[in-house]
Simulated assay, not measured.
Amino acid sequence: MSASLARRAAAEAIGTAALVAVVVGSGIQATELSRDIGVQLLANALATVLGLGVLIALLGPISGAHFNPVVSLAAWLTGRRSPDGMPLREVAAYVAAQTAGAVAGSVLANAMFSRPLVSWSTHDRFAGHLWLGEVTATAGLILLIFGLLRSGRGHLAPITVASFIGAAYWFTSSTSFANPAVTIGRAFTDTFAGIAPSSVVPFLAAQLVGAALGLALVVVVFGRPAPAEAAVVVPHNDTAPAER
């Protein structure tokens, strides 16, 4: 039998919470162990790459391992004409689970390092070049994920998606949030990985623009999908263990 929506949403919440805990926790640890900003960023990026790869491999067979509202929205847009596509009500459940999970992950990381459970970030990221970085990172992420699916190589998502995010930490000015849920969650911690609440909305807008651009690039490179193609991050079947 197929995994229930509740179970898939739980996987998304747990996966996103774990991802944000890795991002925020490794950022705190890095700043406590080194004063060099380059070393801090390297440690933060490496932990994120490893954590994200593991989480996609673990939870992909259950929920598709979106962990990202723009990925879920893109999955709905690309599969809405297919009988196997993701219904809008499931997108809503995923987005709610991802956002709640991201906040919980930030709170957990704060708690693990004896910080206030909620401490609004004062790390201002309000600048045009950072928004361009978010457009670029999100477009690249969407092109990668849906390009892999279109070419029948979705099984490579754990290593390729994690690798792209790790690279984008360094080649984008924004250090590649590329995820609305993670962006919101990171506003709850006044640490290395935080983002000031006043900077959140422009980041979300840039990520949505990037997602649209990424989908356009998928069409340019791979053509329009066949009606039967469904969109997920990791191929998952409807007989997943214990049953996304």
Rank of each mutant, 00 (worst) to 15 (best):
S2T: 05
I14E: 07
G15D: 02
A17E: 05
L19V: 03
I28H: 15
T31A: 12
L33R: 15
S34K: 07
N44I: 01
L46R: 11
A65S: 11
A75Q: 09
T78Q: 11
R80N: 08
R81F: 09
D84L: 01
D84K: 10
G85A: 04
M86V: 04
E90H: 03
E90Q: 06
A96W: 03
T99P: 09
A102M: 00
A104L: 03
S106E: 04
L108Q: 00
L108R: 05
A111M: 07
M112A: 11
R115P: 00
V118C: 12
G128E: 02
L130N: 04
T138K: 05
F146C: 02
L148H: 12
V161F: 13
I165D: 11
A168P: 13
W170C: 07
T172E: 04
S173P: 01
A181C: 03
G185Y: 05
R186M: 00
A187P: 04
I195W: 08
P197F: 03
S198N: 09
F203W: 13
A206I: 06
L208W: 14
V209K: 12
G210R: 14
A212C: 15
A212M: 14
A212V: 10
L217Y: 11
L217T: 11
A226H: 15
A231G: 15
P235S: 07
P241H: 10
A242D: 14
